[in-house]
Design a protein around this nucleic acid. Sequence first.
DNA 1: CTGAAAGCGCTTACAG
DNA 2: CTGAAAGCGCTTACAG
Lengths: 348, 348
Amino acid sequence: MNETGNNTIYEVAKEAGVSITTVSRVLHGKDTVSPKTRQKVEAVIKQLNYRPSAIARGLTGQKTNTLGIILPKLTNPNYALIFNGAYEEARKHGYAVSLFPWSSLSAEDYNPALMLAERRLDGVIINVEYLAPEDAVLLERELKELQQYMPVVLIGCVPQALEYPTINYKYSEWMQKIVGELTALGHERIAFIGGTEEDRYDFRRDVGYAAGLKEARLPFVGNYRIYCKATAEAGENAMREMLESLQPRYWPTAVIAINDMVAIGCQKVAFRYGLRIPQDLSIVGCDNLFFASFNNPPLSTVDTKQQELGARAVRKLLSGDGSRENAEWELILRESIGKAADPVSDTE
Amino acid sequence: MNETGNNTIYEVAKEAGVSITTVSRVLHGKDTVSPKTRQKVEAVIKQLNYRPSAIARGLTGQKTNTLGIILPKLTNPNYALIFNGAYEEARKHGYAVSLFPWSSLSAEDYNPALMLAERRLDGVIINVEYLAPEDAVLLERELKELQQYMPVVLIGCVPQALEYPTINYKYSEWMQKIVGELTALGHERIAFIGGTEEDRYDFRRDVGYAAGLKEARLPFVGNYRIYCKATAEAGENAMREMLESLQPRYWPTAVIAINDMVAIGCQKVAFRYGLRIPQDLSIVGCDNLFFASFNNPPLSTVDTKQQELGARAVRKLLSGDGSRENAEWELILRESIGKAADPVSDTE
DNA sequence: CTGAAAGCGCTTACAG
DNA sequence: CTGAAAGCGCTTACAG
């Protein structure tokens, strides 16, 4: 026993009457050990409750058997799903997962690349959604350096210029599809709430939004494009401001929220203004969070299969596959959307 | 540079023309280094972008600067909050956090205590809520062994018999208070949905439920006590079965769900049966998840201040405070509860 | 089939 | 104020 209370390979070797080399061989299932010796060693390992130190192994083998994953704040349950998927997959391969939320990475005294490098992780998955502008700058500066130390896989809507292995979100496709779905229901005043104006990881949504409107030969109305943070509270404020800034007859008949959190914020305000969903207002979110189907009314949304995505990112990381691939997605239509109210008569 | 692409202390020492001992001293801010030497070394560290290996430090110093946290599946956003709180606090003290969800711990080939011991974590926080019976058995068997290796802090409603440092949930107080609130509103048929019958970490809720009924001199009706898993789907099924098993005039006028997830499951069924909330049915959840205040109608719940709790658990772990303390909590009353319908006339 | 020895990248007495 | 040396607990050629 050492001072931490752990038995070491030396105790096992001594007790079994062999060298530490042999113990190490047994540990790794090498076939160059005689059955008798193997048995003896295994018995001692059990008896002493011996566990090889992952730390020492890390030093020797240059491997820590730990992956890192950088996600936006976990308060959006979406990211918990990605983590879950990544964790389960990592575990299958014998890896643990250390989780680093972006929220804290951007602290001034803090260099994410070095923080990760310091721990000699065997790889890192980075989700670049909803990246604060400061963090985006940090990321791009550090990514290059970070990649010297360990393999990296990105998740999100990543600019082509960033040539890293990526599971890519086709934001513009999603948005265009949603807009198409709404225009088919007769909607002409379609708001889009969420995102940051200068975010280079998010603007593809705007591209899809514009394309959808164009396809239906509808005007782009600046009042319907509201930027806000990706939280329910922010959605609430954004929605209120939009409604207040327009005469009711100019209110949108449909709102696309950047995610489900923002969507429930918008919905809360809609109710407060006496709008019925979907009769007066259709709402679509994104992420298909667990509460979406339990929402009243059930919320239309995009399912991005986050759990599977997390697992996939781990497989990509471990396999060293450097390609850029697209994430799966599916538009889920529920009762929160419906036909646009007759445009001739005013809402209410 | 070594083969991982990292510069080592040797490169720094050579470049600065000093011994590795001196570099180490500079790294640790020891004052026994001449200003001139210090400056030189610091310059080289910067120039070479040198970061000491946390792995090597772990081997030498017997410290890994990593804490572990074992939580139920993160799909309940509640646990994401605990993690966030723990993470932020840990980071302040220079620790990283490795997250281990219970869900996967109980796999047969898997021994949590040893898994953690193997990684030589500097401490571990274990949340024992919603523990599957298998996991509870595992936990108690391993906890003793685990504690030999590293300090442990428990979170949850922990039996007194388990003498570990604990942040304790007073489930029975919470429940009694909720029941009291409902009986004051005239409710006499109060259902309680969630939990497992044999769970020794959960049964204190039943104690409080019974105490609340007794205080109001109300009968305990077995049909109103439904056990189910802590998910929205499970709540949905449980609620449906309860309603189906009783003539409508025996339906409860209030439902206490074990958490907010279960609550929205119950609510969904209530709507489907044409029950209005709160006119026909009051609902209370637990956790005050972000969607509770955005629910339609806003959901009454217990706020358990999870973020702060996570931080507190880390402080407790690092300070070595071995006491048992109680978690803060607050009953949040929102529009999902109201006066019981007149017991004379039937619902509907 | 087995073992002695070097080395992974640090920290920490110990000596000067 | 500074450095040589031992040691943390493993793995991996190398030799036999």
